[in-house]
Design a protein around this nucleic acid. Structure first.
Length: 422
RNA sequence: GUGGGCGUAGCUCAGUUGGUUAGAGCGCCUGGUUGUGGUCCAGGAGGUCGGGGGUUCGAAUCCCCUCGUUCACCCCA
């Protein structure tokens, strides 16, 4: 293949029709269901002060080695970063604007991480998500999780597994960390080299290892839920019973630790089991009760999730659901008299709310009919010399058996409208 | 960041042990007389075989480097 002069940067891609229409439909559907649950949209900047993301934790790869950061032209220059995730931006916005809690918001947009691309993993990827700030109630957790679960169902996905865990809070996690660290340290010689390094940085993350040699050790490791204190245990119980009440299936996964350090108590993840690849997490989230305060705001509990649009679409492919939307125009105007009638007819149809398109460049009728067919439009409006002289068009049914007939150009909009309505 | 697979027309791919002007299907364009698409038929456009270097009389075919892609680790959506 001849190498083009420029191509989309590594890990990025162009999303073209009809796939782009499918993404649009997915985001629209998410927006609808979020609005139905009382969430409003927040549109936040695509880059932030680097410090906003630094607060996510020094032991997360997302912050330490996957950030697209740069300095601007200011004096003094400001150190900025393309957002690697959106929860931090939302918390920054909350701390900045102090909306009335509970603040229920949803968002959509691209995020950036400097990673090795592979299936379902891109340097620019899109997430949709929701957050509730200022609500400690376990029923907020349930509402949020339910929104995610129902959204996957609404797309037609059936092979999505919900895993839930609690990571405790500052009152009980230290005891667990101590027990886990002691347990892993005792067996450090049997851990993979990678996990030995991870143990030094963040013992919790060892539970995430997929290396074979680690599995038996991980399976027998102490689990957080056994260490939950009274309040956090009650919270977790309430979340579970809430999910049970709503009939939402889930698994308790004691190894679900998530990648961001800010999580406390409830954490969860949606895995698309129809995906063969390792990148089968289509969504995840949890509580982050200390994040707003870390960013300079008032102590505020928070819970939310982010769903990966790119991966969801891959999962939809794997399950063969949520197909791209069909054609968008209803009438294709074929004009072999120079094109001015097509110009006029298209404007009339569009003004009347009817999708219309046409060919350009004065091609033959045969060629224009081919384009009309390809457009997916149910009707063609054909204009030849006869029609031009009579002020009419030939309205032809391209998909059914009703043939064609002549109609006055002035009646085109109303005739098409009545044809489309039955 | 580490390791493996792959990289031939817009797309999906063939290309024999390296040997003359690189092929197919689909798609696209133009036709198949006298205004009509979806089937059929005939033509046509389109590739310096990802890029660079090397081996050789000769390389898409072998070697090296590089870029991209893909899979796994890692990480995560």
């Amino acid at each position: 293949m001849a190498e083009p002069t420029f191509r989309a940067p590594k890990g990025t891609r162009d999303i073209l029709p009809p796939e782009s229409g499918r993404r649009r439909a997915l985001v629209d559907r998410f927006a609808d269901s979020a609005a139905l649950s009382g969430f409003g949209e927040v549109v936040s900047p695509i880059f932030e002060d680097l410090g906003v993301f630094k607060r996510l934790g020094e032991s997360t790869d997302i912050v330490t080695k996957e950030m697209f950061d740069f300095v601007d032209k200011g004096d003094p220059p400001q150190h900025l970063a393309l957002r690697p995730e959106l929860t931090a931006s939302i918390c920054r916005a909350y701390a900045e604007h102090r909306p009335i809690p509970p603040w229920k918001i949803w968002y959509e947009g691209p995020q950036f991480r400097y990673e090795q691309p592979q299936a379902g993993r891109y340097r620019q990827f899109t997430q949709v998500g929701v957050e509730i700030l200022g609500a400690d109630d376990p029923q907020a957790d349930v509402d949020v999780i339910a929104l995610g679960a129902r959204f996957f169902e609404s797309l037609g996905l059936r092979q999505v597994t919900l895993m839930v865990n609690s990571l405790g809070d500052e009152s009980c996690r230290p005891a667990y960390m101590e027990a886990l660290t002691a347990y892993l340290t005792d067996r450090v010689g049997d851990l993979s080299a990678q996990s030995q390094v991870t143990l030094e940085r963040n013992p919790l993350r060892v539970l995430d290892s997929k290396r074979d040699e680690d599995q038996s050790i991980i399976d027998a490791a102490p689990v957080m839920v056994d260490f939950l204190g009274g309040e956090t245990a009650d919270h977790f119980d309430a979340v579970r019973s809430g999910l049970d009440e709503l009939g939402i299936a889930y698994e308790i996964s004691s190894r679900l630790v998530r990648g961001l350090d800010y999580y406390t108590r409830t954490t969860f993840e949606f895995a698309a089991t129809a995906l063969e690849s390792a990148q089968n997490a289509v969504g995840g989230g949890g509580r982050y009760d200390g994040l707003v305060e870390d960013l300079g705001g008032p102590a505020t509990p928070g819970i939310g999730f982010a769903l990966g649009v790119d991966r969801i679409l891959l999962a939809c492919d794997a399950e063969d659901v949520f197909a791209a939307p069909g054609p968008s125009v209803s009438v294709f105007v074929v004009d072999v008299t120079g094109g001015s009638v097509a110009l006029d007819a298209c404007q009339r149809l569009r003004a009347g709310g009817i999708g219309a398109d046409r060919a350009y460049g004065g091609r033959s009728m045969k060629a224009q009919m081919k384009v009309a067919d390809r457009s997916g439009a149910p009707f063609a409006a054909i204009v030849g010399e006869d029609e031009l002289a009579a002020g009419e068009v030939t309205l032809r049914d391209l998909r059914g058996e009703s043939g064609q007939r002549r109609v006055a150009l002035d009646d085109l909009v109303s005739d098409v409208r009545s044809l489309l309505s039955n």
